[in-house]
Amino acid sequence: MVTATGVKAPAKAEGATARKKQGWGSGRIVAARVGVIVVVLALWQVLSGPLIPEYAISKPTEVAVSLWKVLTSPTGWTDIWATTVEIAVGFGLGVLIGTVLGLLLGTFPVAGRVLEPLIAAINGIPKIALAPLFLLFFGIGAWSKITIAATGVAFVVFYNLYLGLRERQRELVQVVEVMGGRAHHVLAYVTIPTLASPFFAALKAGGPLAILGVIGGEFIASSEGVGHELFNSAMALDASAEFAGLIVLVVMTLVLNGLLTQLDKYALKRLGLVPRKKAARTRA
């Protein structure tokens, strides 16, 4: 940048000014988050017993001991693995079903108008209310939990793709067709870019629903899984084991969300849908 006197301002001064405008850096943000967690844990440790009954919320130290027992026991890892498999298979199956239905009914408008009220009616039923029905069909094994998870995910993916196809700009399709484009050109240049964002938004919304469905099914009837252990801990009034199971679920949720976020960024980058940064800033 050139000043009014014609002297070029130092680059370091410009960098310092930019940092001041940005406010807190990422390092300070991370430190603040850690500080908040430490304060909450300290208050929890101090208030448990004198102010809040210890049997209801336990203490962070006792939760840490229970979590260590889970992570160092074969039974704990068996439960974690069972729940992970159920979530992964249920999520994948739900994405597949929702994608196929969304593309089919979005591509054929007549079929969409005929079946949409029926799908909306089924979607209105709480998925956890379907759990006893799935348990009758598939038993207390993994497939009943997988089906519950897949049902919740499938509806989210279906509606995002179905509505995305309905909102696809017909003018763009006609332009591609006028230019001699075939069906695969319309798919590559119009349909996929239009559906990319809603599809990955559906994946991020469906991840927690898959976890909710699996844990709900394990609560109702199961012989293994994190939800099964959470239910047993609640019946035994073991608050520390209950919080340890919740920590495991939080970690699983963060891992799934992180994987979906990276997949979203990679796919959008490959499709050229990420806003490009300016190669150089304009100088004064």
Rank of each mutant, 00 (worst) to 15 (best):
A154D: 00
E116Q: 13
T261N: 07
T61L: 14
A150R: 04
G6Q: 04
R168W: 03
G112C: 09
V274D: 13
R270Q: 11
F200Q: 08
P109Q: 05
T261A: 15
I128G: 01
T78M: 14
G213P: 08
D238L: 13
F134A: 00
K269V: 01
N232K: 14
F200K: 06
G181K: 11
A88E: 08
T99D: 14
K20P: 00
M1C: 02
G181Y: 00
S233T: 04
L187Y: 13
S73P: 06
I122S: 03
G213H: 00
A32F: 08
V30F: 02
G98H: 01
S26Q: 13
G25L: 05
A284Q: 02
L209E: 09
G216F: 12
L273H: 13
G49N: 02
G35M: 11
A201M: 13
R28T: 05
K277N: 13
M1A: 15
G102T: 01
D238C: 08
M179S: 13
K8M: 14
M252S: 10
G258M: 10
T99Q: 02
T75K: 14
V156M: 07
L172I: 04
P126S: 11
I211D: 06
G272S: 08
T253F: 09
L263Y: 07
A64I: 08
Y159Q: 12
A234M: 05
G225R: 08
T75Q: 12
V274A: 11
R166G: 15
L254N: 06
I37S: 09
L187W: 15
V63E: 09
L246H: 03
I146Q: 03
F199W: 14
M1I: 14
M235E: 11
K69I: 03
L133G: 11
G213F: 07
L165H: 07
P275C: 03
L209F: 15
R281M: 04
V89P: 05
W24P: 01
T3Q: 13
E116F: 12
A13N: 01
L172Q: 15
G216Q: 01
P117L: 14
A210D: 09
G181M: 11
S240Y: 03
A241G: 09
E62L: 12
G213I: 03
A234V: 04
F219L: 12
G139C: 03
V114C: 08
P74K: 15
L103Y: 04
K127A: 13
V46Q: 12
L212Q: 04
V186T: 10
T151I: 02
I148W: 07
T3G: 13
L118N: 01
E167I: 04
I220C: 08
F231Q: 05
I211P: 04
G213R: 04
A188M: 09
G15T: 05
L71T: 01
V226C: 06
A201R: 09
L133D: 09
L237P: 00
V38F: 15
P198I: 09
G164R: 10
L203C: 07
W81L: 11
T261D: 13
L165I: 11
V70H: 05
I87W: 07
F137K: 05
M252W: 02
I220L: 15
D264K: 10
V214S: 12
G141D: 10
A188R: 15
L237F: 12
